[in-house]
Measured scan of single mutants.
Amino acid sequence: RRRVRAILPYTKVPDTDEISFLKGDMFIVHNELEDGWMWVTNLRTDEQGLIVEDLVEEVG
């Protein structure tokens, strides 16, 4: 499975499927959606939700 790491922190918009995260958080990518969004699991918090790919980098 594809893994990505947050390069910046992010605070979710209330009442959306987004998740908040810290710089350095690792995610497993489940689905890549339109307009650069990804459905992921945050490995630190075990939370699932949407993040935008501009805020993460690939992990080898």
Rank of each mutant, 00 (worst) to 15 (best):
Ile7Pro: 02
Leu22Arg: 10
Glu34Trp: 12
Val40Thr: 04
Leu43Tyr: 06
Leu22Ile: 14
Asp17Glu: 10
Thr45Val: 03
Glu57Leu: 07
Val56Gln: 02
Met26Asp: 08
Phe27Leu: 05
Phe21Pro: 00
Thr11Ala: 08
Val59Asn: 06
Leu22Trp: 08
Glu53Tyr: 13
Thr16Tyr: 02
Leu22Phe: 09
Ser20Glu: 04
Leu43Glu: 12
Leu50Ala: 11
Leu55Asn: 10
Trp37Ile: 06
Thr11Phe: 09
Ala6Lys: 00
Arg5Met: 08
Leu8Pro: 02
Gly60Val: 14
Pro14Met: 09
Pro9Leu: 05
Arg3Lys: 11
Gly36His: 08
Glu34Gly: 13
Met26Ser: 07
Glu58Ser: 09
Val29Met: 03
Gly36Asp: 04
Asp15Met: 12
Asn42Cys: 13
Lys23Ser: 10
Val52Thr: 10
Trp37Gly: 06
Val56Ile: 11
Val56His: 02
Asp35Gly: 15
Phe21Glu: 00
Asp35Val: 06
Glu53Leu: 12
Leu43Cys: 15
Ile51Leu: 08
Asn42Ser: 09
Arg1Ile: 15
Trp39Gln: 05
Asp46Thr: 14
Arg2Val: 08
Ile7Gln: 06
Val13Asn: 11
Trp39Thr: 04
Leu33Ile: 08
Arg5Pro: 01
Leu33Asn: 09
Val56Asn: 01
Asp35Thr: 10
Asp15Leu: 09
Thr45Lys: 03
Pro9Gly: 14
Ile19Gly: 01
Glu58Arg: 07
Phe27Asp: 00
Val52Cys: 15
Pro14Ile: 09
Met26Glu: 09
Asp46Pro: 01
Val13Ser: 13
Glu32Tyr: 09
Ile51Ala: 05
Ile51Cys: 05
Pro14Val: 09
Asp25Ala: 02
Phe21Ile: 04
Val56Glu: 00
Lys12Cys: 13
Ile28Cys: 14
Val29Arg: 01
Trp39Pro: 00
Lys23Tyr: 08
Gly49Ile: 01
Glu58Met: 06
Asn42Lys: 06
Val29Gly: 00
Asp25Gln: 01
Val56Pro: 01
Gly24Tyr: 07
Met38His: 03
Glu32Pro: 07
Phe21Met: 04
His30Trp: 15
Glu57Val: 12
Phe21Tyr: 08
Ser20Phe: 02
Asn31Glu: 15
Val56Tyr: 02
